[in-house]
Simulated assay, not measured.
Amino acid sequence: MNSVLSVYAICVVVLLLKMLAISCYQGYFRLRCKIFTNPEDAAVFRRSAEFEECPQVRRGAKAWSNDLESIPLFIALGGLAVAVDAPGVMSQYLSGLFTVARVLHTVTYLAGVQPWRTVSYGMGVLCLLGLAGMIVLRVLAA
């Protein structure tokens, strides 16, 4: 296995584990607050269903939603970069930086910290654009 594919694979696994962690975060606060919006969930804990989740669960859902806007793009672009044999060192660097940026984005999102949430989001977007640019250049050069 080449090193670009290895870095890409590790990054994908880290990002998926990070998303799983957000789900666990939401579940933890749902149980801690004892607020459930689904009647069947509330019934298990002998509670009435609530109209709205607790603030931590709502914030976790927004972080999860934001991941769904960018992580699939990374999975596609990173896979294409491997497939078209884009420059290895740059692909590894952008993949690693994107992963770090997304982890930082989640941490700062859940903590409500600005401007670092926006900075980490922007870093991730720049990494995606870099990967896209390398793919296009590689394809046009072929």
Rank of each mutant, 00 (worst) to 15 (best):
F36C: 03
G78S: 04
Q114V: 11
N2Q: 05
C33P: 05
A63N: 08
Q56P: 06
W116E: 01
S91Y: 06
V100F: 08
D41R: 00
V57A: 12
V125D: 00
C127H: 07
E53N: 15
L140T: 13
L77C: 02
Y8M: 01
G124K: 02
V107Q: 03
Q114N: 15
V113R: 15
S3P: 01
R32V: 11
G96P: 03
Y109N: 07
A43T: 12
G96Q: 03
E69K: 10
M134T: 06
A101G: 01
G130N: 12
Y93M: 12
A111H: 05
N66R: 00
I35Q: 11
Y8H: 08
I22Q: 10
T37H: 14
S70M: 03
V100E: 04
C54E: 12
Q26P: 08
Q56K: 13
R46G: 12
C54P: 14
A49P: 06
L77S: 01
A141F: 04
A111T: 04
R32G: 02
L16Y: 07
V89M: 12
C33R: 09
R117H: 13
V136S: 08
L77R: 01
Y25G: 03
G96L: 09
Y109M: 10
A83G: 05
K18A: 11
S23A: 14
W64A: 06
T106W: 07
L140R: 09
I10C: 01
M123H: 03
R102L: 07
T108S: 08
I135E: 01
L16N: 05
A61M: 15
I75H: 00
Y8Q: 07
